[in-house]
Each structure stands twice: as C-alpha cells, then as structure tokens.
Design a binder for these strands. Sequence first.
DNA 1: GCCTTTCTGTATTTCAGAATCCAAAACTTG
DNA 2: CAAGTTTTGGATTCTGAAATACAGAAAGGC
Lengths: 200, 200
Amino acid sequence: MARPRTFDESVVLEAAAAQFRVHGFADTSTEQLCEAADVRRSSLYNAFTSKDELFVRALDHYASTMRARQESILTDTSLSGAERLRKLIDAIIEEERVARAEGHAAGCMGVHTLMNPGLRARDERIARILDRDLRERLGLLEDTIRAGRADGSVPDGPPAGEGALLINTIISGIRVAAQTGVTPDILHRIALDGLRSLLG
Amino acid sequence: MARPRTFDESVVLEAAAAQFRVHGFADTSTEQLCEAADVRRSSLYNAFTSKDELFVRALDHYASTMRARQESILTDTSLSGAERLRKLIDAIIEEERVARAEGHAAGCMGVHTLMNPGLRARDERIARILDRDLRERLGLLEDTIRAGRADGSVPDGPPAGEGALLINTIISGIRVAAQTGVTPDILHRIALDGLRSLLG
DNA sequence: GCCTTTCTGTATTTCAGAATCCAAAACTTG
DNA sequence: CAAGTTTTGGATTCTGAAATACAGAAAGGC
C-alpha cells in the first residue's frame, strides 16, 4: 500500500557494523555509513532514527550472528567436546586472517565496544547486549567443556565455569594481539598454549 | 626571567590519562580535562597545543611509567624467574582491583587505545608508542622466561618468544575480562590457568 | 621598581558532523 | 489509473565541542 524500501535492513546493519568495527563509533561519520550501505541519509534516518540507534541495532545484529556461528560449532554433536573447542579457535583465527587480508587488522566489534567505556555510558542497551552475549557464550563454552569431560576428550582441570572464562579471556586476548600485527599462525599457537590447562 | 608554571606537567599528564582511560578519547571533553587537572583552558592549550597532542603525550607518559613499574618487577634478581612472572600477574590483578574500587572497571590505556582504530589513524606517533611499548615489554618477558629456565624455576615449554606473547595475550584478555565485571580473584585464577604451559 | 615574559580567565569564534526539512518520486492497492 | 502513503535526494539548519583571542595578572631579572 506504500512504496517499499529499496534496501535490506540487515544488509545496512552489516555494512554499518563493518564501518564501526574498523573505525570505531566516534570516527565513523553518518556520511561514511550512508556510503558504505549505499543508502541516502534520509533513508537511513528514516529507518533508524539516529546514529546511536543505528549503532545499537548494528551491535545487536552483529552479536547475534557471531554468536550463532559459534553456537553451531559448539553444539555440533558429531564432534567431541575437545574437537569443538579446537574448531572454535580455528574459526576465530580464521576471522582474523580474513580481516588481515582485508587490510584492517580489526577483530571484534564486541571487544571494541567493551573497551570503549564512553559507548556503554551512551545507551544502557549496549551494556545489556554485551552482557547477554557474554552470558550466552560462556554458557555454551561451559556446556562444551562438560560434554568433553563426559566423552573423555577433555581431561580434568579447572571447573567448567572457570574453563569457560579462560577460553573467553584467551579469545579476547587474541583479538587484542591481532591488532598488534601478530600473524594468524602464531596467534593460533598462542591460543593452544593458553588452553593447555583445558585441552592438555 | 618569566612567570613559572604553577602546575606540574606530569601531574597534568597523569590526570589526563586517567580521564582518557575511563571515558575514552572522544568522550572526554577539554573541559573535563581542565577540571581533572585543575588547570585553566588556556594554560592547557599553552602547554600542550591541542587535545590530540595532549593525548599523545599522556599516552606516552602512561606507557613509560607503567612499563617502568613492570620492569622493576621483571628485573628483580632477588626473585626467581617464575616468581617474577607470578608477581607481575599479581600486580596487574591488583591494578584491576584498585580500578574496581574506584568505580570505573577500566583497565589499561594501552589496550583501550589499541582497540580504537580511529585513534591510531589520528596520529602516527600513537602507533609508534604502542609498538615500542609492546616490543619492550615482550623483550622483558622473554628475558624473564629465559632467566626462569636457567634458574630452574620455569619448566620447559614453548619457546621464550612465544611464551612472552602468551603472557601478553593473557594480560590483554584479563584487561578485557575485567571490563565485564569478573572479580579480581577469579581473574587471578584464570591468568594462572592460562599460564599453565609456562609455569606448570 | 620597572620591564619583559609567560601565565590565567573569560568570551568568542569556528567547525565538523549530526539531524531535520521539504519537494518530488516511486510503489501498491482498490 | 488515481489515491494515498512511504521513500528518497539534496539542501539546510543545528549543535556541541575544540580552539583562539585578548586583557589583565603574576613572577623574575636587571
């Protein structure tokens, strides 16, 4: 009954996330966002009321898709617990490899946002999104560690909850290290070194 | 021969660093900086030509003092290599504990800056400061691991260079995890779990 | 005690970039 | 195919914050 949008909302969100990820919130202008998404300014403002709002939506979208990707690895019952964890690490290193190939050494929008306190202050939804994302990912990791202990692929070690935190910490550390130019294959070895208490 | 400054430059740099660390570069106004340092705007601009410049100087100052602190731990020959590494971890956790007590969960200006690509783009000196800081810290860590292997306190494991990267990665990960509200004592356990391949 | 230099405080300017406005276009449906 | 509604493009306005200007004050040397 009315003119339909010519752009796909989630495509815009992904383009926006890519910009925010590479340049950060403050250093991404609305013009850049328009250009990246190939959408005119009024369309953007019409669909997403403000830059802040667009950021929140982009972050949410980004966190969901990323998490879904990790979830599909960690719940793949055709693999042992340990294999799933290793595969997760592989996938993360692969992300960094791709980012590297694309020029920007930029890792993860989640870590970026987390390390930018001003952003969280800007909208309480941001903290909520990050919190929820963290909780869900930790839960998945914990379940996988437990599954690995049950199927015998993961040796005894720290409690599963603590192990989940360890994996998450290592992943964050890897994201940071990637920014300093460490090559993906070295990142991979470091990740496995760090997980020795879990994976042996 | 002329009126001397009433403020101490390094005190201003420390106050500025504290603000930048807690609020981030973009979300710290020059007014906040003046207030935090208790210096009037013109004095600030007179001493440090711009907000950007002040940031660079503050970062440099911050990195140097932080590094010196770590260096004094890592070169304390009254301790074994392993003891020095453990003490470094203790010191970092302690920093997070203090930050936590002060309200802001904020960790490290270095990691903040590293994870904010727009900042590095703003001034090439920033990348230089971070690079140099990283190189020096990795060197110290590597030396300490070697010393620990020589004195028998650090068991065989990954090559010293890789070990240094691991420690650094864990520290970064801890800085990030601290932002999510993990308590200092849990952070401590995670750090030691992650260093198992080095410290046993 | 005067003179030079640098500092201080406030008011003002400037500017980048976010957000709004409006007229025209595009599409759907009855 | 006409009506009604939403989208679109471009120009414009608005805003917040960085930076500057300038007058007056404070210190030190001579």
